[in-house]
Amino acid sequence: MNGYSSRKLHSLLGVIPLGLFFIEHALTNFGAFEGGPERFNAGVKLLNDLPLIYVLEWVLIYLPLLYHGIFGLYIAYQAKPNNGRFQYSRNWRYLFQRITGVITFVYIVWHLYETRIQVMLGNVTHEELGGVMHNIMTQPGLFVLYLIGVVSASFHFANGLWSFLVSWGITVGPRAQRVSSYVCMTLFVVVALLFVLSMVAFRRAEFQEATVLLDTVKSVFS
């Protein structure tokens, strides 16, 4: 695979499936804000009840994530930012796209370790994830780290969508690119808000359950 195809694949995977899954994740989480633990758990159950869930997880999430993440690190390494000389908003977004990409990758690995991998290891069940999140969100330090993680991920997703539209030749002229900038930056704010509101929701007492298992998780991190 030459440079063109590999970069094109990187761009595609960022939107399909990763971008779509990201939106789905934001909505499932927002269920916690809208309807508390029942609504959140219903969302988690809905996903986990999909047929071929392990295949779907690997094909639609893990493999694209690994490719997009590792190739993305290489793209970030290749950049030679010149924002001191060229302080244009597009150039800042070029730089932030790379910085938030690296932050997002590290954050996702950490987040997966705390949630999905703990489920895989048998330390928690899917139904107890709300409690796991409650435990994380009530610790101010971890809350701030999560905040940085979700805001970075939301920016990377929304700005990446803007670049995707340019890289595939969908938004060609300056007006089209300007309008898609407004749309994508609005999307950034909306998605970031969905995640932050759900993070706030997880702090509610109603998510404090299965304390025994939470202690197990705590012991993992301490």
Binding site: F86, R90, S163, T171, V172, P174, Q177
Partner: peptide, 24 residues
């Protein structure tokens, strides 16, 4: 997509439009 090129071109060539068109 840093788009510094189109801001810097002394001839005012719509370079980013060209890049997007060639992307297409």
């Amino acid at each position: 997509n840093s788009q510094n090129c189109v801001r810097s071109c002394p001839k005012g060539i719509p370079l980013t439009t060209s890049i997007a068109e060639i992307n297409k």
